[in-house]
């Protein structure tokens, strides 16, 4: 039996879909036409551009390369602290400590990215006034602040992945005479690796799309390929932001639409991958769990 739903309720999801469709179609219409090699490399031959033999002035390649470096550096910085903290939270922490660490991670997760950026900015101001008068905002600083941003994602995903493992697995491993350390490193972590990987990809997506942090910590519009850890850099989200305000001609604007579409596709792809991995992981674990519970 269908109950008469007020038409307003039906309208709400339709409106949402319609609004999103309009925005997406608008982006596709303006951006899809620009998708070609020249969107990335301008009129420079791709190989020469990739290896930095010739600078690219009218393409997105420097911004893409900057984002790639930034994201990889961020994950390098955040991975071990995140994983370690997740393991501690899942396996070692007493209830009191777990709640304290959980609170810290919740605060970090709730902190707006612009405040993370401000933290980096403050750090540089402080360093300039004290030890390093030459310190400046840079790739490393951005990656450091971004790693703060993605840390809670990695911590909670690795903690959840470990907690989702069946208790029987632990007991079996202990009964075989393994110490807690070996149980964790040889049995639990390999079993949870897929869940942890899903968290890493999610972190990757967050680091790639965030704009406010890098805006305050060293992203600029024209730096070319990233030159080093202590240099300014270009990044895809910043290029989009910059284009919206400062574009000079229709060509630059079209490139902005191309960049926006590219970033959208990238983050959707990353998040779908993470979602798929996580779902598969949980299904497998629950399957194993159910089999273990059956009496």
């Amino acid at each position: 039996m269908k109950s008469p739903l007020p038409w307003l309720l039906r309208l709400a999801p339709l409106l949402l879909v319609a609004v999103c469709a309009v925005l997406l179609i608008f982006l596709l219409q303006r951006g899809l036409g620009t998708f070609s090699l020249s969107l990335l490399f301008g009129d420079v031959p791709p190989l020469q551009a990739i290896f930095g033999q010739r600078p690219v002035w009218d393409g997105l390649w420097p911004a893409c390369a900057g984002t790639l470096c930034l994201v990889l550096l961020t994950l390098t910085l955040a991975f071990l602290p995140g994983l370690g903290c997740g393991i501690y939270l899942a396996e070692y922490a007493s209830p009191g400590k777990a709640s304290f660490i959980g609170l810290a991670m919740d605060i970090l997760a709730g902190t707006p990215s612009i405040v993370m950026g401000l933290f980096g900015f403050t750090l540089i101001v402080f360093l300039r006034q004290t030890f390093l008068p030459n310190a400046n905002t840079s790739l490393l600083l951005s990656a450091g602040c971004l790693s703060l941003l993605v840390l809670p994602v990695i911590v909670s995903s690795s903690c959840e992945a470990l907690r989702a493992l069946p208790r029987d697995l632990r007991i079996t491993a202990f009964a075989l005479g393994m110490t807690k350390k070996t149980v964790i490193s040889k049995i639990l972590i390999p079993q949870a690796s897929q869940g942890i990987a899903a968290g890493l990809i999610l972190a990757l997506a967050r680091a790639a799309e965030d704009t406010a942090v890098i805006m305050l910590t060293g992203a600029v519009a024209n730096a070319g390929l990233p030159a080093g850890l202590f240099d300014k850099f270009e990044a895809l989200p910043f290029a989009i932001y910059y284009t919206a305000g400062e574009y000079q001609n229709t060509e630059e604007l079209a490139r902005g639409f191309g960049a926006a579409l590219l970033l959208l596709l990238l983050s959707v792809l990353l998040v779908l991958t993470a979602h798929f991995l996580e779902r598969r992981y949980l299904r497998q674990r629950q399957g194993f769990h159910a089999a273990g519970r059956a009496r």
Partner: peptide, 15 residues
């Protein structure tokens, strides 16, 4: 625990 072998009610093979 190594010197005391144990087998459980449900067959707990490692995955």
């Amino acid at each position: 625990r190594r010197l005391v072998g144990m087998v459980f009610q449900t067959p707990n093979v490692l995955p």
